[in-house]
Amino acid sequence: MFPTDSLGFDPEKIYDIIVLGGGPTAIGCAIYAARFAMDVLIVGKTFGGLIATTHIIENYPGITSVSGPGFMEMFREHMQSLNISYISDEIGSIEQKEDYFVLQSFFQQFKARTICIATGSERRKLGIPGEEEFTGRGVSYCATCDGPFFKDKVVCVIGGSDSATKEALFLTQNAKKVYIIYRGEEIRAEPINKKRVYDNEKIEIIYKTNITGIKGDNSVRAVIFDNGKEFEVDGVFIEIGSNPNSDLAKRIGVNTNEKGEIIINRKSETNIPGIFAAGDVADAPFKQAITGVAEGVIAAYSAFDYLKEMEIEY
């Protein structure tokens, strides 16, 4: 963030709400909290979250088409107009005091009456031989970041989701050939993106196939199919979903489901009074920027209500 943003941070203050995260959910929550005249601070590891790596967003109402970084730039501008501070840091522990929480990182201690956990999710890994070894040398989890390294090369995208098809479409801007390798029988993209993939001559889909290994020397040279066949590629983009960043929540006793997602109710409340959650880290079945923002906004309102009920001056 810009210098003046972090200058607004006050280590002595007990914030009305500290929002953990850096994506649209976290910022949506903070914007509403600021408009409720609450003292709000955002602490996040990654400004922008996963959506910042999306090359094109076309389903956020009111915005016809925007890049992921462009989308987050709009959120940042909105945040700055309300003088909301953002700190790039990772909270390691949360301790509950009588009527506030103490949040601890290696760099600072924070205090807050309420917390909204909007820490999102991180890309799931395949967990196969070669994946870790070649990360940064042909294996990537971000086409927007690394696509330009594969000009006129052959790459593959692992996965069949809407995100996977969008990664494949983006990669065609540089690569000469893009294979989508999917274990299922039909890609699960939105119809508009499915059509784009089918219409794109550079893209070919290989169905009913799993990857069991990645081979190479200095960089990736091939992937190995589950039938044992070696398939030559220069790059492997892995897009097989994501896991919720809920470790901190679990450590402090916030209830999660079998997927590790934080269980929330329609008020974005968790089982711990004063701690709310929203977005990809929470247990909604359909995860989108718009649904995350909505949950974040509800969390801000519920936190506002909580402070009123606790008769805490805000």
């Binding site: 590891k45 990654t46 990360t135 940064g136 040398r137 042909g138 990537s140 989890y141 971000c142 970041c145 690394d146 390294f149 200095n218 960089s219 790059g235």
Partner: peptide, 19 residues
């Protein structure tokens, strides 16, 4: 051998790809 960014190199020894 950078094939991904951000690519962080500490003292020309440890390398970290990504955020």
């Amino acid at each position: 051998d950078a094939a991904g960014v951000p690519y962080t190199i500490i003292n020309d020894q440890k390398t970290i790809t990504g955020m």
